[in-house]
């Protein structure tokens, strides 16, 4: 029988893949390289230098925004992980229950819903409740958005694990909550961790929802960067962006290594 070479890469395949990846990475690479540019002109190469990173240390507004963003991201990602994991457990283990369709609808819609809608809607709620806008309103808004991403990542994982393990634990006398903590939770731990990281980076990244729900004194990093970018390119922006990219890359590599070392075969689809 003639074997069709399924795993053979044609020249066309290889070109497509290489071009696609180059397209994804080239702009980021340019940004990173130019953040080390000594020249004040963003477009002229003046040799390697760390001066823009040093300059960041004097930029109090930028540092405060970064600190605000990190706090919002940490608190909202943690809350979102708890809520999202609970939601995923409910959707994959609870069978049918009243209002299930509405529940899953509310859970999946924010994944694609344009952020201007979510942001405006949440702002109107906060105004109606007369909540002082600032750290907590942004955190609540980000929790709402990111818990949906956590739920999807964890639910995908819950669908992939062998349920007979949970059932065996309960046959052996575990209470459901105990079986969940002793058996299910360790099995879904990589997905829960990935969910937390996704929530953290999404919160760190969000401009639109934060702009709507924030108040005076609670400027997040993307809001700060956005207002600077609108005024024109500054080399310091390249530096802060490079730092953010580095932070995220290190976290992703660490997470994937941790999963590998844990020796678990992770069938979880890519977080999306």
């Amino acid at each position: 029988m003639r074997r069709v070479s399924l795993n053979r890469l044609s020249a066309f395949n290889l070109t497509a893949l290489a071009a696609g990846l180059a397209f994804l990475y080239l702009p980021i690479a340019v940004l990173v390289i130019y953040s080390f540019n000594a020249s004040k002109l963003v477009t002229v190469w003046g040799g390697w230098s760390l001066r823009w990173y040093a300059g960041l240390l004097d930029d109090r507004a930028m540092l405060e925004a970064a600190w605000m963003s990190l706090r919002v991201a940490f608190v909202s990602a943690t809350a979102a992980t708890v809520l999202g994991t609970l939601a995923a457990v409910a959707l994959s283990r609870a069978g049918r229950f009243a209002g299930r369709t509405l529940f899953s609808g509310m859970l999946y819609a924010p994944l694609v819903l344009p952020e201007v809608i979510t942001g405006l809607a949440l702002l109107l709620l906060f105004v109606a409740l007369d909540a002082g806008r600032g750290f907590w309103t942004v955190t609540l808004a980000h929790t709402t958005l990111t818990m949906c991403f956590v739920a999807v990542v964890v639910q995908a994982r819950l669908g992939g694990i062998d349920r007979s393990l949970e059932e065996a634990a309960m046959d052996l006398g575990c209470a459901p909550a105990r079986a969940f903590i002793a058996v299910t939770l360790p099995l879904i731990a990589p997905a829960v961790a990935a969910g937390w990281m996704l929530a953290f980076t999404l919160s760190l990244d969000d401009l639109v929802i934060a702009s709507f729900t924030t108040g005076p004194g609670a400027t997040t990093l993307p809001i700060r960067i956005y207002s600077e970018v609108r005024l024109g390119i500054r080399p310091e922006i390249n530096a802060i962006c490079t730092l953010m990219i580095a932070l995220v890359s290190v976290a992703i590599v660490a997470a994937s290594l941790a999963t590998k070392w844990a020796g678990r075969r992770d069938d979880t689809p890519a977080p999306l």
């Binding site: 702009p27 993307p222 390119i233």
Partner: peptide, 13 residues
């Protein structure tokens, strides 16, 4: 995973 805003900003460069 890297910031949306940063990726758009990279193109301005």
């Amino acid at each position: 995973w890297t910031s949306f805003l940063i990726r758009v900003y990279a193109w301005i460069n």
